[in-house]
Lab assay of single mutants.
Amino acid sequence: DVEPGKFYKGVVTRIEKYGASINLNEQVRGLLRPRDMISLRLENLNVGDEIIVQAIDVRPEKREIDFKYIP
C-alpha cells in the first residue's frame, strides 16, 4: 500500500502538459504535476526514466495518487 509522505521509486510512463504518469508497479500509478516538481522541469523528463517520488495525496477509493518530486 502507498502511504502519504513515503518515498518510492517509479518509472515515467507518459508525459503530458498537465504532468507525468508515474508507475510504481503494474497495479500502482499516479501523477506528478509540474507544480510538484521542485528542481525538475517536465520537459527534462523522458518516458522510461526512473525517479524517486514522494506520495503526497493518496485516494484509494478513486485509485488516484499524487506525487511530488524532491531531489
Rank of each mutant, 00 (worst) to 15 (best):
D1M: 14
D1W: 15
D1Q: 13
D1F: 14
D1A: 13
V2D: 02
V2R: 03
V2W: 07
V2K: 03
E3N: 07
E3F: 12
E3G: 04
E3A: 10
E3R: 13
P4W: 07
P4G: 05
P4R: 13
P4H: 06
P4K: 14
G5L: 07
G5Q: 04
G5N: 07
G5V: 04
G5A: 04
G5S: 04
K6F: 07
K6H: 09
K6M: 10
Y8T: 00
Y8C: 13
Y8R: 00
Y8I: 01
Y8E: 00
K9A: 08
K9Y: 08
K9H: 09
K9W: 12
K9Q: 07
K9I: 11
K9G: 02
K9P: 02
G10I: 06
G10H: 00
G10C: 11
G10L: 09
G10V: 08
V11G: 00
V11I: 14
V11E: 02
V11P: 00
V11D: 00
V11W: 12
V11Q: 05
V11C: 08
V12C: 05
V12N: 00
V12L: 02
V12M: 00
T13D: 05
T13M: 09
T13E: 07
T13P: 00
T13N: 04
R14M: 10
R14L: 09
R14W: 09
R14E: 06
R14T: 07
R14K: 13
R14D: 05
I15Y: 00
I15R: 01
I15A: 01
I15F: 03
E16F: 15
E16N: 15
E16L: 13
E16K: 10
E16M: 15
K17G: 09
K17N: 11
K17L: 11
Y18P: 02
Y18V: 10
Y18C: 11
Y18G: 09
Y18I: 13
Y18T: 11
G19S: 06
G19F: 11
G19M: 05
G19Q: 05
G19H: 06
A20Y: 08
A20T: 03
A20Q: 01
S21E: 15
S21M: 15
S21N: 08
S21P: 01
S21K: 10
I22V: 09
I22N: 01
I22G: 01
I22H: 02
I22E: 01
N23C: 15
N23A: 15
N23P: 01
L24A: 01
L24R: 00
L24I: 14
L24W: 04
N25F: 09
N25R: 06
N25T: 12
N25E: 05
N25M: 07
N25L: 06
N25V: 07
E26Q: 12
E26I: 12
E26K: 12
E26R: 12
E26D: 14
E26Y: 11
E26W: 12
Q27E: 12
Q27I: 12
Q27D: 12
Q27N: 14
Q27L: 13
Q27W: 15
Q27F: 15
Q27S: 14
Q27M: 13
V28T: 12
V28Y: 11
R29G: 13
R29W: 15
R29T: 14
R29H: 13
R29Q: 14
R29E: 11
R29C: 13
R29I: 13
R29P: 03
G30A: 04
G30W: 05
G30C: 12
G30I: 10
G30V: 08
L31H: 04
L31Y: 07
L31W: 13
L31R: 05
L31D: 02
L31V: 09
L31F: 11
L31T: 09
L31S: 03
L31P: 02
L32Q: 02
L32D: 01
L32E: 01
L32T: 01
L32P: 00
L32F: 04
L32A: 01
R33D: 03
R33E: 02
R33Q: 05
R33H: 06
R33N: 03
R33P: 02
R33S: 10
P34F: 09
R35A: 12
R35I: 08
R35Q: 12
R35H: 10
R35D: 08
D36H: 12
D36S: 05
D36W: 09
D36L: 05
M37Y: 03
M37E: 03
M37H: 03
M37T: 04
I38H: 12
I38T: 11
S39A: 12
S39P: 15
S39E: 14
S39M: 12
S39C: 15
S39D: 15
L40K: 06
L40G: 06
L40T: 07
L40Q: 05
L40V: 07
L40E: 04
R41I: 10
R41T: 14
R41Q: 11
E43T: 08
E43Y: 09
E43P: 04
E43Q: 09
E43G: 08
E43K: 10
N44S: 12
N44C: 15
N44D: 15
N44M: 14
N44T: 09
L45W: 01
L45A: 01
L45H: 01
L45P: 00
L45T: 01
N46Y: 09
N46L: 11
N46S: 14
N46F: 10
N46M: 13
V47M: 05
V47Q: 02
V47G: 00
V47F: 02
G48A: 01
G48N: 05
G48V: 03
G48M: 03
G48L: 02
D49K: 02
D49W: 07
D49C: 07
E50F: 14
E50K: 10
E50V: 15
E50R: 11
E50H: 14
I51F: 04
I51S: 00
I51A: 00
I51H: 00
I51W: 01
I51G: 01
I51Y: 01
I52A: 02
I52Y: 11
I52C: 14
I52L: 10
V53M: 04
V53N: 00
V53K: 00
Q54K: 08
Q54M: 15
A55R: 03
A55S: 03
A55M: 09
A55H: 01
A55T: 05
A55C: 14
I56S: 06
I56N: 02
I56R: 05
I56K: 11
I56D: 02
D57N: 15
D57Q: 14
D57F: 14
V58K: 04
V58G: 04
V58Q: 03
V58I: 11
R59A: 05
R59D: 10
R59H: 08
R59P: 04
P60T: 10
P60I: 10
P60G: 10
P60H: 10
E61T: 09
E61A: 11
E61W: 08
E61D: 14
E61Q: 10
E61H: 11
E61N: 12
K62Y: 09
K62C: 10
K62I: 09
K62V: 12
K62S: 13
K62Q: 12
K62G: 08
K62F: 11
R63N: 15
R63Q: 14
R63P: 08
R63C: 13
R63E: 11
E64K: 07
E64Y: 12
E64M: 11
E64R: 10
E64W: 13
I65P: 03
I65D: 02
I65G: 03
I65M: 05
D66Y: 15
D66L: 15
D66C: 09
D66T: 12
D66Q: 10
F67L: 09
F67P: 03
F67Y: 02
K68W: 05
K68C: 10
K68R: 15
K68T: 06
Y69G: 02
Y69V: 04
Y69T: 03
Y69P: 03
I70F: 11
I70W: 13
P71T: 07
P71E: 07
P71W: 08
